[in-house]
Design a protein around this nucleic acid. Structure first.
Length: 457
RNA sequence: GUAGAUGUAGCUCAGUUGGUUAGAGCACUAGAUUGUGGUUCUAGGGGUCGUGGGUUCGAGCCCCAUCAUUUACCCCA
């Protein structure tokens, strides 16, 4: 067989042992915080029906969904006309019925509707699984990456939103981030602004444009708004709102003025105030909570609070986001169920922590003791000791007999194994085994029970 | 989809105006050391220079195409 150059698909990666230690550290930390706040883990399949996903993420999102070719003779059922016309979009429906999940929120909504009779509401679930996007990879952007989501459905209490802030703060502080912002906004405020301007139908274009403020500046935003159908007059009314400054409380007061004539806008402000009021009773560790009126987020299923988390220590896109969605389950036939959730971008958090060197030295993830022998006799002698070590919860391995002792020590060294037990003919005869500390180089003769005590300590 | 950068040993990279047999570090193998690694010294293996074409007496280097990787835009975690 011709040999194939080994490679993985664009934007996807292998994770070697050293990386997995660090990744698990992130996952375990986030999961423990989720559990602490009452969230329970579920998983959903890698693939969803294409119809479940399409139309949930906007036109752009639809293009970024990885579609999976039907099994068997997939062209048999294809739309011949669409194929002849080279109309990919139309042809897709005939040849693909499944797709890789694009996020965890939509599959969760599907799950809730499908299992509504088993679920006790409010239902608080977390989910840590990879998602796939057919995007162009670049810094901090992969085609396969993990999201860590916590969502609650069936509770409209704004305490949930307040707790999301606490979860972000606690998890990221635990991971060692020292300066990050949890940005918060409310979709209803954005709606109110669009309403005041008199262009409620252009809310999506408006939010997409002002979301870019810190990237392209006010001039860029104005230019984009003009192309989207806003007049200079609209922009004159919009500008002071976008450029609001001051403390969160000051921004809220100014917004109350601006949105006085918009019931929905005022509702959004009220929600924000409630969340801030809840948080008065809690102390944040490292996070800065910041009301950011330009925060929009692309997903248009959000209806209330919107969150986004950014680190201020390195240049990186957002490392988390979320918000409230009042109607996501209605797409699957269950009306009147509100939900809210947040997501951590584990891969970006990894990149940030790597850059800031925040990973602790992990010592207990490797083998603690390696038994080295010279021959079959030593190996046989070593087997009971090996089991005894493992029975005492000591990570231990026996180097298969036959290799040169130098090679075995090399192995221990490369694998960062801290202790080596050497068993040769002397040791077999006397029962006094050679026990060596690989860090200091010290070695001494000890019997197996003494070794056990040393390793348990 | 648009634009730039980069493709040389398993990895990270050097390679002069185009000139003999393409180099280094790390890693690997062996020896110095027949019961001792991490340090040191010595030797060794390993290359269709991404691929295809062109210019030239001569191409890793110049030109064209193509593929791959990567960065930015759009969008997003």
């Amino acid at each position: 067989m011709a040999s194939v150059k080994p490679s993985v698909p664009k934007g996807m990666r292998d994770f070697s042992p050293a990386e997995m230690v660090k990744r698990n550290y992130i996952f375990d930390t986030i999961k423990s915080v989720f559990r602490k706040y009452g969230y329970q883990q579920i998983e959903t399949p890698t693939m969803e029906n294409l119809t479940t996903l399409m139309g949930k993420y906007g036109d752009e999102g639809d293009k970024l969904i990885f579609k999976v070719l039907n099994s068997g003779d997939y062209l048999a059922k294809a739309d011949a006309q669409a194929l002849a016309d080279r109309n990919s979009q139309k042809a897709t429906a005939g040849i693909s019925e499944k797709a890789l999940r694009y996020d965890l929120t939509v599959p969760f909504a599907r799950y809730v509707v499908q299992h509504q009779n088993e679920i006790i509401f409010p239902f608080k679930r977390f989910q840590v699984q990879p998602v796939w996007r057919a995007d162009r990879p670049q810094k901090g952007r992969y085609r396969e990456f993990y999201q860590c989501d916590a969502d609650v459905v069936g509770s409209d209490s704004l305490l949930n939103e307040a707790e999301f802030v606490l979860i972000y703060d606690e998890a990221l502080s635990l991971l060692g981030l020292k300066d990050f912002s949890i940005k918060i906004n409310n979709r209803k405020i954005l709606s109110g602004i669009a309403e005041i301007i008199g262009k409620p139908e252009l809310i999506v274009d408006m939010t997409v444009a002002i979301d870019k403020l810190d990237k392209i500046g006010m001039d860029g935003v104005v230019a984009e708004l003009l192309t989207k159908g806003f007049t200079q007059q609209d922009i004159d009314r919009l500008e002071p709102v976008i450029l609001l400054e001051g403390s969160n409380a000051e921004k809220i007061e100014k917004l109350k003025d601006v949105l006085a004539a918009s019931p929905i806008g005022l509702k959004g402000i009220e929600e924000l105030e409630t969340i801030f009021a809840y948080l008065q009773s809690f102390t944040l560790q490292k996070a800065t909570l910041e009301l950011d009126i330009t925060l929009a987020r692309g997903l248009n299923y959000y209806t209330g609070a919107i969150f986004e988390v950014k680190t201020n220590e390195v240049a990186m896109g957002s490392i988390g986001g979320g918000g409230r969605y009042d109607d996501l389950t209605s797409m699957f036939g269950l009306k009147g169920l509100t939900g809210a959730g947040i997501s951590f971008g584990a891969d970006r958090i990894y990149d940030v922590m790597e850059e800031l060197q925040l990973f602790p030295q992990a010592s207990n993830q490797t083998t603690k003791a390696l038994i080295c022998t010279f021959d079959k006799e030593g190996e046989t002698f070593a087997l009971p000791l090996l089991q005894q070590l493992r029975n005492n919860n000591i990570n231990a391995e026996l180097y298969p007999a036959g290799a040169k002792i130098k090679k075995q020590f090399d192995y221990a060294n490369n694998k960062n194994i801290p202790y080596v037990i050497v068993i040769g003919s002397d040791e077999v005869q006397t029962g006094q085994l050679t026990f060596k500390d690989m860090q200091t180089g010290d070695q001494q003769k000890l019997d197996s029970s003494a070794i056990m005590e040393r390793l348990k300590a």
